Amino acid sequence: MRVMVLVKATEDSEKGFFPTPETNEMMEAMGRFNDELRSAGILLDADGLKPSSLGKRVAFDGPGRTVIDGPFAETRELVAGFWLWDVKDMDEAVAWVKRCPNPMPGPSEIEIRPLYEMADLQ
């Protein structure tokens, strides 16, 4: 079962990444966690996203397309980073997320979403 594990954005992550002793320590802890995921054969891909102020959205309405420049409202609904994992089931994904170091300096959330597989679409 493949899942996308979404690190939700915070006000801090929307300000951008600035190396400090605290962020460097956090990145080292996350690097060790990613190494564990790799060793367990779970990690397929992972990365962090730049703030939404550097992003764009494209809104679709029939044949029309409208480009919307960031930043986007509702920071708590944005994504700051992701992993793509191949796990046995959702329980295994939850167990791994519980082992994850806090990805942000303050309170944060991680969302786990299963991907559609070909068998789901038949």
Rank of each mutant, 00 (worst) to 15 (best):
V67L: 12
I42A: 14
V79Y: 02
E92G: 02
D12W: 15
A95Y: 02
G41S: 05
V87Q: 01
W83C: 00
S108R: 06
G62D: 07
A59N: 11
V67R: 11
F60N: 14
P21C: 08
A95L: 02
T10H: 12
P71E: 07
L84N: 00
G31N: 05
G81S: 01
K8I: 03
E92T: 01
R38E: 09
T10V: 07
R99W: 04
R99M: 06
E117A: 13
A46T: 13
L49A: 03
G70Q: 03
G106L: 05
G41W: 06
Y116M: 15
V58P: 04
F18L: 13
C100S: 11
S13E: 10
A95V: 01
Q122Y: 13
L121V: 10
K50I: 03
I42M: 14
S108I: 07
G70V: 01
D47L: 02
E77S: 07
E74N: 06
L78I: 02
R38K: 14
V67G: 08
G81H: 03
I110R: 11
K15Q: 15
E111W: 10
E111R: 09
M30N: 11
T75I: 07
F82S: 00
K8N: 06
A93H: 07
D91G: 04
N34P: 02
W83T: 00
D61E: 12
K88Q: 13
L44S: 07
P21I: 11
A9R: 13
R76W: 10
E77G: 04
A46C: 09
G48D: 08
E36Y: 08
F17I: 01
V7W: 09
P105S: 09
L54D: 13
V3T: 10
P19I: 07
M1A: 14
G48K: 03
P103N: 09
W85P: 00
T75W: 00
V3M: 13
L84H: 00
T20V: 06
S53L: 14
I42V: 13
L6V: 03
M30G: 09
A9I: 07
D12H: 15
I112M: 11
G48R: 06
R65H: 02
T75R: 00
N102Y: 02
R76I: 04
L121N: 11
M90F: 04
G55T: 02
E74H: 03
V7P: 01
L115D: 06
F60C: 14
W96Q: 02
E28S: 10
I110S: 04
R65Q: 05
S108E: 08
G16Q: 09
E36G: 02
M27N: 12
D12L: 14
F33Q: 10
S39W: 05
M27L: 09
V94L: 12
D89C: 01
D91A: 07
